[in-house]
């Protein structure tokens, strides 16, 4: 498991940051985010809390070996759930990768809360974790496959060389080279 975290302040009031977060993309500095779709949204008629579920499409130039090994493509999708609570002036945004999630997960939590009437605290944590059980079973499967291939090839090697030896020496016995 790997962790990442950072915090800093934006020089804007909380409400301005929270209005702004719906305008973050498209962004010339974050061109990897190519699509955003809201797939669910509720406004709680008692608490006023807005829950939004979105799917973000990202184009990441993954290293070629990752694409080959995991069958990934350039398109990666992320599920994002946000809660905007005006009463506590708290925003939380949770994200998790949908693509390649059978191999590893990246869970991110972002919070926006007022640091002062004119400043907003941003905090971000992420946990990146490979699914070890699956890795083990994949590694186990890979080893089994390699052993089978090795056994097959060893068997074919034996048959093949037997043929070569037989043909070579049968030929030479039939037609001894003139001395």
């Amino acid at each position: 498991m790997h962790f990442f975290s950072q915090t800093f302040n934006y020089d804007h009031p909380w409400a301005h940051v929270v209005i702004g977060m719906w305008h973050k993309y498209p962004n010339s500095k974050c061109t990897h985010v190519v699509s955003i779709d809201t797939i669910d949204r509720t406004v709680d008629p008692v608490t006023g809390i807005i829950r939004t579920e979105r799917v973000m499409g990202c184009k990441q130039k993954a290293p070629l070996w990752i694409v080959k090994l995991f069958g990934g493509s350039e398109d990666a999708f992320v599920r994002e759930i946000s809660f905007v609570d005006p009463a506590t002036q708290n925003v939380t945004i949770t994200s998790v990768n949908l693509s390649l999630s059978q191999f590893a997960t990246c869970n991110e939590l972002i919070r926006y809360s007022p640091a002062s009437p004119t400043h907003t605290l941003f905090s971000q944590t992420a946990e990146i974790q490979a699914r070890m059980a699956l890795w083990r079973s994949a590694a186990d499967g890979l080893e089994k496959w390699l052993v089978q291939r090795f056994e097959q090839n060893a068997h074919l090697g034996k048959l093949g060389f037997t043929d070569v030896l037989r043909n070579l020496w049968e030929e030479r016995h039939r037609a001894p080279s003139p001395s």
């Binding site: 829950r51 759930i81 609570d85 708290n90």
Partner: peptide, 13 residues
């Protein structure tokens, strides 16, 4: 993803 983490309740401050 929803089964693993439904996230229907707000995360407390």
């Amino acid at each position: 993803a929803r089964e693993e983490n439904p996230l229907v309740e707000p995360i407390p401050p």
